[in-house]
């Protein structure tokens, strides 16, 4: 393998990893506020299909992206009403959301399977930055959504760690009762973060159909939403680590195929198992503190419904 091949591969890695990155960033925000949403796969699919239909119909990428984001946000809103207002079990509600989204997307999109569109996100080389050796062609000759995802990493890190809104979000996920007592509207924070998570999952779906696969087909995400959920843990709820994790998963995803292409035969399925194995090992050995407090970064009140009256 020579340098150009490696650079091409790393560029493909970034593209493949961006679906994970967008979705896991959204899930990080949601979970930071205490709302676990296992419905990423469903939200992603609904975003993927609505975004694609909007692109076919409107010929506008902006409209398509907005529609996908709104659709993802609406899906998350169902989860929010059930889990925040009605205090439903978050694991079960998330599973239900995935089931619903899988069915809804297949139903809504059945007339768009095989329909092609020219309204796609194309690679846009950023003047200047794309000229940087190695990094330029890898990171700065990508689609617009890749740049959006990179900016989001910075923005979400900044908001969560450096602003008072971030403090409110984090404390809502750590100790909602104390946060409430301090005069913060915990429900509003949780609704907002949960819906924001859905918006990004929807955008991740649009990335799949309009920037990566460039087509809609039933169940196009094929489990990538679940990987995004796993990535949040892998990243210990940190946006920067989510970026590294997403690209790692992206690399593994494309590496199996590439290695086969150059004649190195590793059973692809075993290869695809690696990210999960890695997450498992990191979870077990990377974060354990025997006897002491765990340091995996998980919000303390994650997935526990906040009951104001039981305060």
């Amino acid at each position: 393998m020579d340098m150009t091949m490696i650079i091409a591969m790393l560029g493909a890695m970034v593209a493949a990893g961006t679906t994970y990155l967008l979705a896991s960033l959204g899930e990080i925000v949601s979970e930071k506020a205490g709302i676990l949403n296992l419905g990423v796969e469903g939200m992603m699919l609904v975003g993927a299909v609505t975004g694609y239909i909007a692109a076919v119909q409107s010929h506008s990428l902006l409209v398509a992206a907005l529609v996908a984001m709104v659709a993802g946000g609406l899906m998350a809103a169902i989860h929010a009403v059930l889990c925040i207002t009605l205090k439903a079990n978050q694991v079960v509600s998330g599973l239900a959301l995935t089931i619903f989204g899988t069915g809804l997307s297949a139903f809504v999109g059945k007339d768009y399977v095989g329909v092609l569109t020219e309204t796609l996100f194309r690679n846009v080389a950023i003047p200047g930055l794309s000229q940087i050796p190695v990094i330029g062609p890898i990171l700065f000759n990508q689609t617009m959504l890749v740049y959006v995802s990179l900016l989001l990493v910075l923005a979400i890190w900044f908001v969560l760690e450096k602003t008072s809104l971030g403090l409110k979000i984090r404390s809502a996920g750590e100790n909602p009762a104390a946060t409430d007592a301090a005069g913060v509207n915990v429900f509003a924070i949780q609704y907002g973060c949960s819906i924001f998570g859905g918006v990004l999952a929807g955008l991740a779906g649009a990335f799949l159909t309009l920037a990566y696969n460039n087509i809609w087909m039933e169940n196009i995400s094929a489990g990538q939403g679940w990987i995004a959920v796993a990535l949040v843990i892998f990243a210990r709820w940190r946006p920067g680590r989510a970026l590294l994790g997403s690209y790692l998963f992206g690399l593994v995803g494309i590496l199996g195929l590439r290695l086969q292409a150059v004649g190195i035969s590793i059973p692809t399925q075993l290869f695809n198992m690696l990210p999960y194995l890695l997450t498992l090992l990191v979870m077990i050995f990377g974060t354990g503190r025997p006897g002491g407090r765990r340091n995996d970064g998980a919000p303390a009140a994650l997935s526990l419904p906040y009951d104001r009256e039981a305060r």
Binding site: I233, M273, Y276, T287
Partner: peptide, 22 residues
Amino acid sequence: LRTNETITTLMLNYIALKLVHA
């Protein structure tokens, strides 16, 4: 080690399913 079982069992799902596939 107080490792979150939701996550480990979720990961183990994929590992088993990939193993079946392989």
